[in-house]
């Protein structure tokens, strides 16, 4: 058996979620082959080798970067070359676009949003998040080729050193891709929300966009990403890509701090698989406290700066 893992980079660095995918693959099969768009220099080989990848297919063509159609074709050529019967991809906005195209191309069955290691290898049986974070389903994939996409933190990082070789895989550039990218707007340097290990989120209780400075400061102190509730992005206090919940991003960080958010069921749906939840709300009756591990009943404007200072004292 052979397992192929798609490796995604952000600002030139291999994403930690892709390394989680490698560890996931490694726990299923000794031989793990990776595939990535971009250069596989010694830096990439070192880090992939550290987690147990034995070979990485790569192609540095610019046309491949961020083109889900091209990437689906590229990954498929890796699948055929390696004779892989299982393909593992960490979820991301790019991965979510690649996965369905790849599954059809590779005539594979697919389970997305997988949250845990398989409970059985044959048939391959995994747990996936359903009902928007409100439940889990255990599913079995039929015989044949399979694709899994992984939720963040489906498995922890574990080193398993091996030496990693690289092999350039041909890729025929299409003259005119079906979807043309005209422009990109992307925050640089900040921690990407779906990738973040810690998230500081604030809601309508903050009163206005001008009050986000203290939220950002707390986030910076923790090395956390910032997030918000839906009304906050609806009112354009914060950009839409920070909105978490039923209709926004689903996050599963190790720490989620909710400030001035009431805890509506649609908000909880996107955040309740966080490992530890801290709620700060001035209303002791706020429903969010029922889903929290730790809480402070108090005014955010008083608590947040104090909390930031307290964290600075220990980290």
């Amino acid at each position: 058996m052979s397992v192929l893992v798609f490796i995604e980079t952000n600002e030139g660095e291999i994403k930690s979620s892709s390394l989680e995918a490698v560890c996931y693959a490694k726990s299923i099969n000794e031989n793990v082959v990776a595939i990535m768009a971009g250069e596989a220099s010694s830096k990439e080989l070192d880090i992939l080798g550290k987690y147990g990848v034995t070979k990485v297919f790569y192609n540095e063509s610019e046309a491949l970067a961020n083109d889900s159609q091209g990437l689906a074709e590229f990954i498929f050529s890796g699948v055929e070359k390696e004779g892989a019967d299982l393909i593992i991809i960490a979820r991301s906005s790019l991965a979510d676009s690649i996965a369905p195209k790849l599954a059809i191309k590779a005539k594979a069955s697919i389970a997305t949003n997988v949250v845990d290691l398989p409970s059985s290898q044959s048939p391959l049986t995994v747990k996936r998040g359903v009902f928007t974070g409100k439940a889990f389903a255990t599913v079995s994939l039929p015989e044949g080729r399979k694709v899994l996409t992984l939720a963040k933190n489906a498995v922890g990082l574990k080193e398993s050193p091996s030496s990693c070789s690289s092999e350039k895989l041909g890729f025929s550039e299409v003259a005119s891709p079906k979807v043309k990218r005209l422009s990109v707007e992307k925050a640089t340097g900040s921690i990407l929300l779906p990738e973040a290990d810690k998230v500081v989120s604030a809601g309508r209780g903050l009163k206005g966009p001008e009050n986000w400075e203290m939220i950002e400061e707390l986030a910076n102190t923790l090395g956390a990403a910032t997030a918000c509730s839906k009304p906050v992005s609806d009112m354009e206090w914060r950009p839409h890509h920070e909105h978490v919940g039923q209709t926004g991003i689903k996050v599963s960080p190790s720490l989620y701090i909710a400030i001035g958010i009431s805890g509506a069921i649609q908000h909880l749906a996107g955040v309740n698989s966080s490992k530890t939840i801290v709620v700060i709300n001035k209303d002791a009756e706020a429903p969010f406290f029922k889903s929290a591990d730790y809480g402070i009943v108090g005014d955010a404007f008083e608590v947040v700066p104090k909390l930031t200072e307290a964290i600075k004292r220990v980290v």
């Binding site: 069955s109 049986t125 439940a135 889990f136 389903a137 255990t138 079995s140 039929p142 591990d293 608590v303």
Partner: peptide, 28 residues
């Protein structure tokens, strides 16, 4: 090629919330 759903379960309930006073941020 369809996958089959064997069973469903709910996320584990969180144990009850531990509260801290505003001036206990260090304890939090």
């Amino acid at each position: 090629g369809a996958i089959s759903y064997n069973s469903f379960d709910l996320p584990p309930e969180r144990s009850s919330c531990k509260f801290f006073e505003v001036d206990q941020v260090d304890d939090l």
